[in-house]
Design a protein around this nucleic acid. Structure first.
Lengths: 141, 141
DNA sequence: CTTGACCTTCCCATCATGGGAAGCCCCATA
DNA sequence: TATGGGGCTTCCCATGATGGGAAGGTCAAG
């Protein structure tokens, strides 16, 4: 199987497959006589693993750890569980940040008339002033 | 005011101030005789505006649009409101994606014993198999 | 044998940010 | 007045994960 087929079969683009190999996330693929990378079902499975882990938001470093555990038949499932729990915590953190942004924006949007007039509490808030545009603002000092 | 003071006053790092100037997000700062960038309260206010908008998750392109509206005394507040609503939608989209990841992970974590044994439904899921590790998996075909 | 689809490597771009080097400038203190 | 320390300048590099594209080799079908 060439890289294109492996890409289709795994859902990982050929570009990414090469990149993963280059960075050592996955072992170097075998090569045909003419230098083409060759893949078998086992390699495709690894690629699908990576794909799935990435889809769950794991950064590449964590994917590498997951792969290592996957390969290690002596692993403790608690190690895997910890990685997953850390990832959940990371997601929660980012979600919370974005919820905060969203909340602020919703408040501002709520306060904005949204008509043809220029008066806009959103811009006022961003400007840090209250009811003043930069042009109007007195430049004291 | 030199760039360091402007950075402290605005919450934008000196690095970023130079970058914003370079990319045209903000106008070029004035220069002292010896080439130092100089800033006044007006410039600091612009920097704070950028900072605040970035804190709300607006990408730089959108911040540029917001700045343009801020400067435009003829703007319609509806234009600003639209930008804010788009940003809310973008945030919601990303939040939904991450909630989905989190949900999947929580399910997997729930199914994983998390003890010293190697059996792990999380890895099984990532591997796309059910109850098999890559080493065990028969390479049919 | 030609054509078109595929593969290779190499470089560049994204987005926003930080780190660091080399060299100049400014001010206070000895 | 000399010196030292901190601040400023530009320039280059790195991040993380991905895509785009060029130049050139390979393969299979017609």
């Amino acid at each position: 199987m060439n890289i294109g087929e492996a890409a289709k079969a795994s859902g990982v683009s050929a570009k990414m497959i090469r990149y993963y190999e280059e960075t050592g996330l996955i072992p170097p693929a075998g090569r045909s006589g003419s230098g083409y990378r060759t893949y078998g079902p086992k390699e495709v499975q690894i690629l699908r693993f990576v794909r799935r882990a990435r889809d769950l938001g794991f950064p590449m470093v964590k994917v590498a750890e997951l792969l290592a555990l996957w390969r290690d038949r002596e692993r403790a499932s608690s190690d895997v569980k910890h990685l997953a729990e850390d990832q959940i915590a990371a997601l929660e953190h980012r979600i919370r940040e974005m919820e905060a942004m969203k909340g602020t924006l919703e408040h501002l949007v709520h306060c904005c008339a949204g008509d043809t007039r220029p008066d806009c509490p959103i811009l006022d808030d961003l400007g840090g002033l209250h009811g003043k545009t930069p042009v109007d603002s007195p430049v004291r000092r």
